Computed example of a mutant assay.
Amino acid sequence: MLRSFLVPFLTDPLEASFFARALIGGSLAAVLCACVGTWVVLRGMAFLGEALAHGILPGVALSVLLGFPPVAGAAASAAVMAVGVRTLTKRTRLSNDTAIGILFVGMLALGIAIVSRSGSFAVDVTAMLFGDVLAIGPAELLLIGAALVLAIAGLAFFHRGFTALAFDERKAHTLGLRPERASLALIGLVALAVIASYQAVGTLLVTALLLAPPAAASLTRKSVVGIMAFGSAIGVAAVVVGLYASWHLSIAAGPAIALAAVLSVAVAALVHPARLRGARARTSSASTAPAESVTSCPAHA
């Protein structure tokens, strides 16, 4: 009886080619976001991730209106955000959070203003904010896959720099690990994850994949690599659960995936309540553990 229910429940959606592509593309995006998001969580950069996810809106909107690939516009907007944040914090007395907040609001407002000039304001904004994972095609799969390979290479190359930066920026300077370069590289990787993944869940909800799975994993794992691996598994599970929920309950796929990702944090907190109370201390130890080995390695980041 149970089998007669489960088999069609699991296999019927797979008969649609777009559903299978959504599973693959969403899973690739989840792994990409979890790997990059691990450092976002460990370094307390959640606001930057959200700001970049929203900040690409004007570039995407302008590209759509002018007939250019949306990814090109997203990349341009992310570059403006990254350069703008660094410029404001270096040349003024504004804090990092303040600079991010100013640019975040400005870019979001500019994006809405650009979209409002088109004749389909509501439809365009909905598509950009919430995405359409079921519309992922071969080109998007290739883009997300290439971004994942590039991100993993970047994370491996800058691992010691990121670790030292999270542990002690002054010590990173002493070790010759160029923390400013590592900080820019991390911003670039966050932008890469956002640009490649927004097609799956949109600019608004990509933050869920970027933050929730690594946050849930950080409640059960202590090492950076462990958080990345388990966070990736949680993210993929969120994609699978969200897509099947979308199919069988007739709800939007992007929000369903994001909701499943966020719920994973609640589940992890219920399973490990003591670790939830000590999350901040633990994530600090997760960063410091590998940092102790930085001194024995030649600087290359």
Rank of each mutant, 00 (worst) to 15 (best):
L243G: 09
A113V: 11
P213E: 11
L142V: 00
A217Q: 04
A172Q: 11
Q199S: 14
G131N: 11
G188P: 07
A252Y: 01
I227L: 06
T220A: 15
L184N: 10
V194F: 07
F121T: 02
L205T: 12
V201W: 07
G226E: 13
S183W: 13
V115H: 02
V149I: 11
S250H: 10
A146S: 15
L129R: 06
A216I: 04
G145E: 03
A216S: 12
F167K: 01
G137P: 04
A164G: 15
T126Q: 13
V239Y: 05
L134N: 12
G119R: 06
D168R: 06
L189Y: 08
M128Q: 07
T126I: 00
G202D: 08
L205D: 09
A196D: 11
V190Q: 10
F157P: 00
V241F: 09
T207M: 15
S232D: 08
V149D: 04
L219N: 06
R181P: 03
V201K: 05
E169L: 14
V123Y: 04
A233V: 09
D132W: 03
G131C: 08
K222R: 15
S116T: 10
V190M: 15
S250Q: 12
G176E: 07
I195W: 05
T174K: 02
G226P: 02
A146G: 15
E169A: 15
L204E: 11
P213K: 12
F130T: 11
A146N: 11
F157V: 01
